[in-house]
Structures are given as structure tokens and as C-alpha cells.
Write a protein that binds this DNA or RNA. Sequence first.
DNA 1: ACAGCCACAGTTGTGCACAACTGTCTAGCT
DNA 2: AGCTAGACAGTTGTGCACAACTGTGGCTGT
Lengths: 213, 213
Amino acid sequence: MSTAAARHQRLHSELRERICLLDYPPGTKLSEEALAAEFGTSRTPLRRVLARLEDEGLVESRHGIGTLVTDVDMALMAQVYDLRLHLAALAGQLDPLPVTPGVRAEIRDFVTRGEALLAAPDPRAFAALNSAYHRFGLSLTGNAPLRETAARLYYLTARIWLTSIPRMNLTSECAIFLGEMRETETALAAGDTAAAALIRRAHISMSVHRMTR
Amino acid sequence: MSTAAARHQRLHSELRERICLLDYPPGTKLSEEALAAEFGTSRTPLRRVLARLEDEGLVESRHGIGTLVTDVDMALMAQVYDLRLHLAALAGQLDPLPVTPGVRAEIRDFVTRGEALLAAPDPRAFAALNSAYHRFGLSLTGNAPLRETAARLYYLTARIWLTSIPRMNLTSECAIFLGEMRETETALAAGDTAAAALIRRAHISMSVHRMTR
DNA sequence: ACAGCCACAGTTGTGCACAACTGTCTAGCT
DNA sequence: AGCTAGACAGTTGTGCACAACTGTGGCTGT
């Protein structure tokens, strides 16, 4: 049963990932016709996906020109980061979910994947793991609007890291990331989701500090 | 010069207002064809507006059924209010804008309109003034993502007050509202936007408390 | 040589016809 | 009478053709 809504979600996630992983760098012209052909539909359903991406600030459609991937406005992104910091901390205060054995298994798995990443550093793999880890952090709160809002803002800033990493030390970043996950594992082992959220907030803050230096 | 984007904004605002003022109560079936005829377009541009409203959680389109105004889920709304409380306080911390003479004139005007409302209490006029006052409160921060996020969440909960007012004391609510605006005027006269934001947060909290009693 | 204009290719936006889907009502059978 | 199947009206979803718009490149007149 492949409903229209399901396909919409699929295409939206796919295009969003391509944009955030810089498969479509800022300024790329997305052809409605080409994408429609690739996904085996007509322009109509695809246009709805692009409209949503435009509402989310990831693309911009101009009549007669094309649909362009937005460029990363650092002044705006600084504001988004400011907001994300507070939302990250809120994830531990608003409706914190109990730490189940399943959650503990998840964070253990993340630590394992982080160790693998540190053994073989790779920007794209880092970005992918970071994205998954972000979703995991959000899963610790039962507040649905907070989850959606934080996710929306995350995808706005997701591209910055990949553009900054050439000027940074990749191995060092992987080690720091692994350290954050280990700290979080400790916090969650004690059932302290609020502490886990504060760890996340601290690391987002420090990450911004390293990127903008 | 009436571009497509401008019309999209116009129709979006118009329909959102009709939903939030309960001109379209929850469960109302919005006919794409009828609305398209009313606004003098075809279904195509109108469908994009409805799609955006659906992404914002105000309507829900079902194939073969219709596009229905969502009902107000109190469990979800409680979560939205939790989040809104913190965002209201953040408006005074993140990029607080200087209190210009223009701002002082605005809040003075709001107090005047509040006095007029108290003299002739009316639910719809209250809701309209509250909406305008909410936008004013957001204008005190320079953080654009915070403004957009708070606005989005506001419109999600805007309908609750109108549905609760029959069980409340309208005149009392008007008096409390006027009191909040006067307090805010004092805070802004002192140039203290952070205090203004905290006043707003406190009143949102107390308002929720009165509604859910 | 240069400036201005026009035709054109390429893109998004719009309108319309039809497909897909859902709930209801009715006719017919048991 | 009750039940089932099928036609039907009404709605959203899709595909396609065309309108509207933009930038470019060449052509022409001076």
C-alpha cells in the first residue's frame, strides 16, 4: 500500500538528505522534470515536495529561472544555532521519556559506530552518523512539537559542518564526537535524560565555537 | 505587481485566520473548488496553500473524503504550550532589539485598544487583539527563526482560547489582558525587553492554568 | 565598432481533464 | 425484513498542455 502521502514523505526525505549532504551544493538548479523522471512521477507530486522544501528554507523557486538550493547564510545560521542550543536543553526538561533497555542498547550501538568512525574518519560518514544521533537525542523527549521544531532547525544548519570540516581536524572532530556519545551513555545509564540533554547542548555550543574560529 | 508568491501569502494568511477565528470550526470540510472560485483562481494554486496549512497541522487532506480542519487535540496542545512558554522567555534573551520610540508608541496603542476592549468585551475582538499583540511581542527579538517558530506554534494553539471562553469570565479575561499590556508598557519604558518577555511568559502560563481548570 | 532589440530556449506557474478513492443510497435477492 | 452488491455522487490526486517569465545570444541599424 503505497499512498500518496507515503511517497511524499519518501521524496521529501530523499531530497532533504541530498541537500544536507551537499550532493546538491548551494546554488544547484533542481530540474522539476528531471527529478520527476528519476522518481517515476509527473511534475505535480514533485512540485509539492519542492514547495515544502521551500517553506523549510532549503530551496527557493523563482519563476522563469529555476528551483535553486539556498546558500548558507551565516548570520541566519548563527541565530538558528542560538535557538537550537536552548531547544537541545529543553529536550531533557519537557516530557523526558524513561530510559528503557532499548534506549541503552541504542546509545551503546552509537558508541560502537562512533568507534568505527574514529578508526576510519570520513566526512560523509560523520555527517550521516551525526544526523542519526540527532534523531536519537530528540527521541528522549515525549514532546512532539519540540521534536519537529528541533528537527526542522537541525536540517537548516546541517550543511554548515560539511562546509567547515575542510578547515578543521577531522580525526579530532571524530574523537570529540565519540567522547560526547560516551558521556551520554554514562548519563543515560544513570537514567538522567536531563544531563544527556545538557551534554548535547554543551557539545553543540563547542562545535559552533570550533567552526566559527 | 501581484506575484504568485504574494497571492500565496495572502490566501495562506486569510485561510489561517478563518481557521483560528473558528469561522471554519474543527471538522469543517474545505472545498478546493469553492475556495478556488471565491479567490478567483483554479484549484492548483489553492492546493499549494492547503498543502502548507496541512504541513502546519491546521488541516488534513484525505483522498476521496475532503480537506478537513483538524480538531484541537488537548494532549498535543498541552505540549505546544509547554514549548511556547520557553520560547516566549527566549524572545527576551536572544537578540533583544532596542526599545525605540516606535516600539513605545506601539505598546501605548495596544494599551489604548485594550482599554477599548475592556469597555466593550467581545470574544472575537479579544482574539484579534491577542493575535496582533502576539506578533508585537515577537517583534522584540531580532532572531528570525525564533519568530517564525513561535508564530507557527501560536497559530496551532490560537483556537483553544476561543473554545474555552464560554466557560470563562470574558470581562475578567479582558481586564487581565489589559493588565499584562500595562505591565509590559512599564517594562518597555525602562528598556527592559527581557522583563517584557518574562511578563508574557507568566501570562501565557496563567492563561493556560485558567483555561484547563 | 557598438548599442539596442528581438527571437528563442529553458524554467516555473496555471488551468483543465481525468484517474483514484470513499461513503451513501438503492435495487434486488434470499 | 434484512442483507449484500453495485451504481453513483463527490472529493482529492495526477498528468499534461499551455501561459508567464527570465536570461542569453545573435542580428541589425547606425
